[in-house]
Amino acid sequence: MSGAPRKEVLVAAMQDVRPLAGILRGVHFSDKKRATIAISEEGLMVTVEYNKLLLASAYLFEQMFNEYTYTKPVLTDGEAEEGFSPILEINLSLLLSALDVFGGAGLGSVIISDKDKVSKGRARRDDWDGNGMDRVEPDDRKKATAMRLTWLGKGHPLCLHLTDAPNVSTVCELTTFEPDPAMDVPFDNGKVAARIIMKSSWLRDALSEIDPKSSKLTMICTPPQAHGSNRGGKRKATFKLKAVGNLGTTTMDYPDDKDVLEVAEFRSEEPVSFTYPFECIAKSVPALRNSLKTSLRIDSEGILSLQFMIPFRQHRMSKDKGVARSQNFIEFMCASLFDD
């Protein structure tokens, strides 16, 4: 791109695409292929919607890239709008296919040896494997695919340059579309009724136990004060999942133990209970697999925010001297179903 007449709005490069592909897979739902990418100085935000029910965003902070340069585009009227950041829409499936063009993003269909699966300490119940995080150790079988992503600005394609060996390279041009108006999920940060932080594996294991055909999942958060110790019997669980499926009802109780629920905060002493479409929550399994911790928040209107923290190896220091970011996250937002 040297000698290009205009400066790129975005240049982002990394030596191994696996962490990026791993996160993007967390927001890749087959039914909706398009995703929006918002570009800012802090990084990229990749957002997809699912059936007008779920809004999922992956936050990719600039520190995860080996190189990241954002140049604010000059607006046509010459005035730089406050807080303006370009948003473009692309086909996410094609982006993921491009990242895996040499089989270096672990999207599957490239053989992962059985030996590898078994030798990993944790037992794996399914095939979501192959993200950048679980395999911190260098993978001998597959060379890293390096990526350089550039965008000249509105009306231009998103360009990727990928390589995994000196004598082979891939160029990808993704058409950029005008984004549709984004779905609005009005989560009220000022009225968080319940907030829970736990290890992602706790939630992931629970979700994998639930009958995939279940239509609804109820989340019940009970403040310790509401337990009512007068009964003297069993204390109610602080956090409880209840799914109704064809084969019956599954419930999962999370005790109020700091080892399980690192944080459990409530706005009042009233229990919080809302029901969500199970298919939306189930979509979080790939994101959960990639993440260490999950922050779950429900506001007083029942809107759910799930944030999956995904650590990355920091390649560069922050430009501003602020807090150094060392984890990306994926956020799922979903409104509750009306009670029957």
Partner: peptide, 8 residues
């Protein structure tokens, strides 16, 4: 849609 992937 004009998206292109090209490996050389």
């Amino acid at each position: 849609d004009g998206e292109e992937l090209k490996t050389t």
